[in-house]
Design a protein around this nucleic acid. Structure first.
Lengths: 277, 277
DNA sequence: TTTTTTCGGTGCGGTAACGCACAGTTAAGT
DNA sequence: ACTTAACTGTGCGTTACCGCACCGAAAAAA
């Protein structure tokens, strides 16, 4: 049987539960394209933890303390970090990976609630006191992260130091992101939501290329795959992106920002305000 | 000109900025129906602050300290407690009122992000550190609340006592509510969302009657007024509610719970888990 | 290379909600 | 009692997205 708990925490033996964790098969493995292999193997040296903005914002001595406790982990595409309702063990500070917070409905359809990259942390419910949350956290873009045992973070949090302040401010930013997702889902066209999604992802990456099939994007946005085909086609026709079998290259970022709804800017502005460089 | 700041903090001279704050007229006053008059005048004695679940959950001595600092305020229908981007002054603990958190878009259309009643507190960004938020808080159902100066709450929060724990857990519950709103907006029919909205309101009231026009509900749900007419009509035909010019009477709560989507139960369960009686 | 799988594009009928216009009805104000 | 404003119901064409079916192209596996 599929055991999300196991999946979420096994480290060496990576089992993919299908992208978005939506697949039923247990042993299905993602076939790694050359790009994925490059990112997925252990050959490259660990990245600087302070690529993560929260860790970067810590004063030196706080960070020094932290860096001894953190553990470097790979974040392969599709890995499920948390499963709905399951006790969380760690918080994750992504350096170059992107994690999607999804709600999966009883009938299997899903919707993205928020996205977390190097600007934040995955595992807010740990320090908020709830320990779990009715959603799933899935790696949306492969890379690395540093993780910390939940208890250690809670200890740090209760010391009411700079880390607490950062985490609380980040949580508020996350609140805004969720709120704006709700608004956007209500009022804006798929085209606009697709652009918003692209920009949110782009902000959390160093490159201007996304490894992401239309099927996956559809799962995130909670729409049909064909809908994404159409939206992506429109944006491509406008010359803003180039699309090809799971590789999206952004050609004109400014153009995307013109096409997107106000939701993107609202969230971005709020993140910048709450967590300035 | 319409000055939301003024509106948000004037206390004795109540100016309504139109329901949901969407009206352009400044001096338009809501004509109070007999029911509203009853709730709106100062004749009735202040209610017990501990009708608010957060205050009720405090240990006696913490509560005793708090009760000296809090101020009793009326919450008339349509009053704007906070305006998007404006510095908050107080946090509000509703006793029998309901407050709606709305995002209002550039073009004037709106959508409800979350709803707060006697289970929670309005003004989360104050203790989260952001001070403001890009949304509006409007009284959706008239009643009372106790409020506290922002600074006093922040002092209390930083003492890391029971209040901090409660506020953090409540914030997590709020996160879930927002997330589920996003999901519901994405996937569920207006009928279901209408039921969800009814049940959320109902849970926060002592009576089984709501004072709420279809126009207002439409503003909250971010849909057309005619859409609400149709949804309400359907639910009424099913014998679950009785509807008449701004008065909704719930006839069959269990029936509503059968008709609603899973979102309602997810949120309710999470609130019960995080903030048990 | 050949086979198999995955990914993306297209077409088509169905539907839920939209925007608009207008009419009927109830309640509030005079 | 009368006027006025607010609230609700209805009809109609439009639109965005859905669900399904199917096909071709590209990539991975054999």
């Amino acid at each position: 049987m599929y055991d999300p708990y196991d999946t979420a925490h096994c480290n060496n033996k990576i089992i993919y539960t299908g992208i978005l964790g939506l697949s039923i098969q247990q042993d299905r493995r993602v076939r790694l394209s050359p790009t994925n292999v490059q990112k997925g193997t252990c050959m490259s040296p660990p990245p600087d933890p302070r690529q993560n903005h929260l860790l970067a914002a810590l004063p030196e001595e706080d960070y020094a303390h932290f860096s001894l406790l953190m553990e470097w982990v790979q974040m392969p595409l599709g890995k499920v970090l948390y499963e709905s309702g399951i006790q969380m063990r760690h918080v994750y500070f992504p350096t170059d990976s992107i994690v999607s917070l999804l709600y999966v409905m009883e009938d299997g359809s899903s919707a993205e609630i928020a996205v977390v990259g190097n600007e934040g942390v995955v595992g807010v419910p740990l320090f908020m006191g709830g320990e779990t949350t009715p959603s799933r956290a899935v790696v949306q873009s492969a890379g690395y992260a540093y993780r910390l045992k939940g208890q250690l973070l809670k200890n740090e949090f209760s010391r009411a130091g700079p880390m607490q302040i950062l985490l609380l401010r980040y949580t508020q930013a996350l609140l805004t992101q969720m709120a704006q997702t709700a608004v956007c889902n209500r009022h804006h066209s798929l085209d606009q939501q697709f652009c918003r999604w692209l920009l949110l992802s782009l902000d959390r990456l160093s490159s201007n290329e996304l490894i992401m099939t239309q099927e996956l994007i559809a799962g995130m946005l909670g729409v049909r795959r064909e809908g994404v085909t159409e939206a992506a086609g429109n944006v491509q026709k406008a010359g803003l992106i180039k699309y090809s079998r799971g590789h999206i290259t952004i050609l004109d970022r400014v153009g995307l920002e013109k096409r997107v709804c106000e939701c993107y800017a609202v969230v971005k502005k709020e993140f910048d305000r709450l967590l300035p460089e």
